[in-house]
């Protein structure tokens, strides 16, 4: 058991973070909190990626005459791209939240649903 935890702790952390993030995305009513959850969720995946790129005893993958073993750099590159995507997604989400705030006067999901149900008519502009 201990071995499992020690041997796979990177996965466990990634899973735990992912669950936390996922929970926030689904269960939180505040839209900003949902986005925070989304970021945690994505970060968990990034951590997972980076951890699988680690080679035991490897150094940073910069060509250097003293190093014999390098970490795998590819996951880092992939994750760089994924981070860009994540940032863009977050930016779009924030832009949406701002406009939702303007249109509904709230960023609490349950209140938005209530407003919609009560049929306050009219477009946002």
């Amino acid at each position: 058991m201990v071995e499992l935890i020690l041997g796979k702790f990177n996965y466990l952390i990634a899973i735990a973070l992912a669950m936390i993030g996922f929970y926030a995305m689904i269960a939180k009513s505040n839209l900003i909190k949902k986005i925070i959850g989304m970021n945690i969720f994505q970060t968990a995946v990034f951590l997972f990626y980076i951890s699988i790129g680690k080679v035991h005893g490897g150094t940073a993958p910069i060509v250097w005459d003293k190093a014999v073993l390098y970490d795998n750099p590819l996951p880092h590159v992939l994750i760089l791209t994924a981070i860009v995507v994540s940032v863009s997604t977050t930016a779009v989400a924030f832009a949406l939240i701002i406009r939702i705030q303007k249109a509904f006067g709230t960023i609490e999901e349950d209140k938005i649903i209530e407003i919609k149900r009560n049929g306050y008519k009219g477009d946002m502009e």
């Binding site: 860009v84 863009s88 930016a91 779009v92 924030f94 832009a95 701002i98």
Partner: peptide
């Protein structure tokens, strides 16, 4: 751009911009 878009409180200047750098 993202910063200014989200920072602006003025309704008329509000922009949304989805084009990220993929």
């Amino acid at each position: 751009t993202i910063f200014f878009e989200t920072a602006q409180r003025d309704k008329d200047d509000l922009k949304d911009r989805g084009s990220g750098d993929g």
